[in-house]
Simulated scan of single mutants.
Amino acid sequence: MAISQMLTIAAIATGAVAQLKTCSNNGTFSCQSSSKSPTCCFNYPGGALLQTQFWDTDPATGPDDSWTIHGLWPDNCDGTYQSSCDSSRQYTNITEILKSQDRSDLVTYMDKYWVSNSGSSESFWEHEWGKHGTCINTIKPSCYSDYSPQEEVGDFFQKVVDLFKTLDTYKALESAGITPDESKTYELSDIQSALAKIHGNATPYLGCDSDSLSEVWYFFNVAGNAIDGQYKATDTLSKTSCPSSGIKYLPKSSSN
């Protein structure tokens, strides 16, 4: 499928306002330019940004009627990626940082929708920031016009949540008659079609664990910086791990 139509993500005003430097190249999308130089207004090499989600059933995490947040990952426009790019900013106090920025409501939301199935939420957030957030070049401290320590951390987590709120995977599947069930199975193409409707007609990546639906990754190209730039939905750069048919979508309650 060709690159899809533009999908602009509206900012949700919560917490501090980003003081990132103004970008004048909002018409230049990442992964779609001959430029190979990272700037505060051009995401490179991690030009594609992925809003990733989990469907955990064993053990179950989050509400029974919602997928949960995995993260926001920069991808090198080809399915490869950098990781853990700045050890000096691999913080171990994400909750404290967010609360110090008057983002307590954000923490409350994350406690419900951004949870780990194998450890504390705090350690999960630390991992996602350290491994992926530090590799987004357009939110480096040098990209702020009036930088406050750890300001980019709050902006990162707020942006992930804002994107997640625009991509309600559970409702999109439910609208297509695809609901969690112990015995029903579904076609890959039907699941992809249902999710493309909330993603600018672009096909997301679907992940399966033993033929059971477990992950979705929504790919974007971005013009400007990763926080207040313009997001455009694009097709997956990764091959699905799900079969073409016989996909299970187990209810979370099945693990209780």
Rank of each mutant, 00 (worst) to 15 (best):
L188F: 08
L20I: 09
W55I: 10
Q53G: 12
S210Y: 11
G71R: 07
G46N: 04
A172W: 04
I69H: 09
H70S: 00
T108V: 08
S253N: 13
I97V: 00
T203Q: 13
A10T: 12
P141L: 10
C40D: 01
T61C: 03
L237M: 12
K112H: 07
I12C: 08
V160K: 01
H199T: 06
Q82K: 14
C135V: 05
S142Y: 03
I198A: 04
E174T: 14
S253I: 14
S100I: 08
P243S: 12
V115H: 11
V161G: 02
F42A: 02
G71K: 09
D146L: 04
G71N: 14
K21C: 06
R89F: 02
G62K: 09
N26V: 08
S66M: 09
L237D: 10
N137T: 10
E151G: 13
W114D: 04
A223T: 02
C77W: 01
T134N: 13
L167W: 05
T80W: 14
I97Y: 02
G46A: 03
E182W: 11
K171H: 01
N256L: 12
A2C: 12
G177A: 06
S88V: 10
C40L: 02
S100E: 12
A223F: 01
C41M: 07
V216E: 10
L72S: 02
S87G: 11
W217T: 10
I191R: 04
V115E: 15
V222A: 04
L173R: 12
E215C: 09
K140C: 00
S33Q: 04
D111A: 08
S84E: 07
R103M: 13
T185F: 00
S30I: 00
E215A: 11
C242L: 08
S4Q: 13
L163K: 01
W73K: 03
K165E: 14
I69V: 14
Q90E: 15
S148V: 15
M6S: 11
P63T: 05
N93R: 06
C40Q: 00
Q230P: 01
E174F: 13
K197Q: 10
M6T: 10
N25V: 06
A176R: 09
T236E: 10
L237H: 13
V222Y: 01
E174P: 15
L72R: 02
N25L: 09
P251Y: 04
G119E: 15
Q53S: 15
G177R: 06
Y81G: 00
C242M: 11
